[in-house]
């Protein structure tokens, strides 16, 4: 019994702080929603998952801002909330509604296989980041590995799904993961740089919107499988 208690106490001593725990849990949620996008059958649910992921990023930014007293992050959280949770998903959903495509069979591999590949890629990302020592005043360093894993899985989403919506959502969520990484590495990043990121994102939305429209009007589908054939 005495031994039991000493073991418990020693393990309790290595428990990270509540702040690190909550921040890491939110980061894991971002990564998990990335996996969910990889799995999602309906394009609509992919976009909703993107909105959810952005909401988690917003929550994380607010939490870090409150706990670490970085007021600039509130502004970023506000912009994220308006832009990435509401405006962008609304635009893409409208485009999707106009295209009248519900379901695109775009899994290049079986879902379980894709998830296993994505797990392998995340392991690579997490351990690569683990070998870098980053002292961050905003987030625990474990979050860096998870953010990089999310970046890699969003690449996989673009590679392994062959429809325009997946590729757009993959790109947008890539931006989410990158801004998460910037939260970890440099939360004090000047607001102006962050705002420049958002303008990049807006440009990307316009480009992907045009791509979706043009692709759909030319091929009558959102799948990109036919693009490897010449059309006369």
């Amino acid at each position: 019994m005495l031994l039991a208690h000493s073991v418990i106490l020693s393990s309790a001593a290595t428990v990270p702080s509540t702040f690190a725990g909550v921040a890491d849990a939110l980061t894991v949620l971002v990564l998990l929603s990335e996996f969910a996008m990889l799995h999602a059958q309906l394009s609509r649910s992919q976009i909703r998952l993107y909105a959810f992921q952005s909401l988690v990023v917003t929550a994380l930014a607010v939490y870090v801002a409150a706990e670490r007293h970085i007021p600039g992050l509130y502004a970023i959280a506000g912009i994220t909330l308006v832009l990435k949770v509401v405006v962008i998903p609304a635009i893409v959903l409208t485009l999707l509604r106009d295209a009248r495509v519900e379901l695109v069979a775009s899994h290049r591999l079986g879902v379980a296989t894709m998830v296993l590949i994505a797990i392998a890629v995340s392991v690579f990302g997490i351990f690569t980041a683990g070998s870098i020592t980053v002292q961050s005043r905003s987030l625990p360093s474990g979050a860096l590995g998870l953010a990089i894993a999310a970046v890699l899985v969003s690449f996989l989403l673009i590679v392994l799904r062959s429809d325009v919506v997946s590729q757009a959502v993959g790109f947008f969520s890539l931006e989410n993961a990158v801004s998460l990484t910037s939260l970890v590495v440099a939360a004090g990043l000047p607001l102006i740089v962050e705002v420049a990121f958002f303008f990049d994102l807006l440009v990307a939305v316009v480009v992907f919107g045009v791509l979706m429209r043009v692709h759909h009007s030319h091929h009558d589908t959102l799948s990109t499988r036919q693009l490897d054939r010449l059309r006369g």
Binding site: L31, G110, V115, I126, P140, S141
Partner: peptide
């Protein structure tokens, strides 16, 4: 059902991974 299993496996693997990296 394998997809369900893959989801459970993903969660368990992530749990080990975050323990290894962040100590969290």
């Amino acid at each position: 059902i394998t997809e369900f299993m893959a989801a459970a496996f993903l969660l368990a693997v992530l749990a080990v991974l975050v323990l290894f990296v962040g100590g969290s």
